[in-house]
Amino acid sequence: MGIMTRMLRLCKADVHGVMDQLEDKGLLLKQYLREMETSLGHKEQQAAALAQRIDRLTGLTARHVQEMDKLERDLDLALEKEKDDIARMLIRRRRALDTATSRLTEQVETMTQEKTRLAETLAGQRLQYDTLRAKADAYCSRAADRLLETPPGRCAGTVYSIDPGDEEIELELLARKAALQKGEAP
């Protein structure tokens, strides 16, 4: 391994380390959870749309079956009256409806299987989301507790003081005395 490769790897590691320090883990967790929730919402909408299509196709299949029953009765009547031309036309229509019905039934079966797979995937992802949400809430709670445990006058992870220094207090005191001497409100 050459020295340039090692130097390049060291620089990349430093950049990644700096980025890790800049990123707020709690905010990132919340953003990831929002993205997961949005994705779950889209999949739930897909499942609902698929269920509506299945219902629509099932209704269409039922109407085709009713129409075939009606055609069957009309066909029996045409055969009784020896109307062969009408019987041929009714047979042709019945066969077309029978083919359409079988294709619709196949589509419903395929969509039902797809809906079942989607529901299983969605249930697994919902469980993962709930688990991650609980972990993220616990992480944010621990982070808030750590923030509350920091000594007064210091923020977690920073070296800035919240308490004003003696110089700042003296400057404000002098400014207030000067304002009082001039008759102004501080």
Rank of each mutant, 00 (worst) to 15 (best):
M1G: 12
M1S: 11
R6W: 02
L8N: 09
R9C: 05
L10W: 08
A13L: 12
A13Q: 11
D14E: 13
D14P: 01
D20G: 09
G26V: 00
L27P: 03
L28H: 05
R34D: 15
E35T: 04
T38I: 03
G41H: 07
H42E: 10
A47H: 09
A47L: 12
A48D: 08
A48V: 05
L50T: 07
A51H: 09
Q52Y: 09
R53Q: 13
H64S: 02
L77K: 04
A78T: 04
E80H: 10
K83F: 08
D84A: 14
I86E: 08
R95K: 10
A96H: 10
L97A: 07
D98C: 14
T99K: 13
T99S: 11
T101L: 10
T101I: 00
S102T: 13
R103H: 15
E106G: 14
M111E: 12
T112S: 13
T112N: 07
K115C: 05
L118W: 12
A119I: 00
L122N: 05
A123G: 08
A123H: 11
A123V: 04
L127W: 12
Y129P: 03
Y129N: 00
T131Q: 09
T131H: 08
K135I: 00
A136M: 02
A138L: 02
A138N: 00
Y139D: 01
S141P: 01
A143Q: 01
A143N: 02
L148R: 04
A156E: 10
S161G: 10
S161W: 09
D163T: 06
E167Y: 09
I169K: 12
L171K: 13
L171G: 05
E172I: 09
A175D: 09
A178C: 09
L180F: 07
A185Y: 06
P186Q: 07
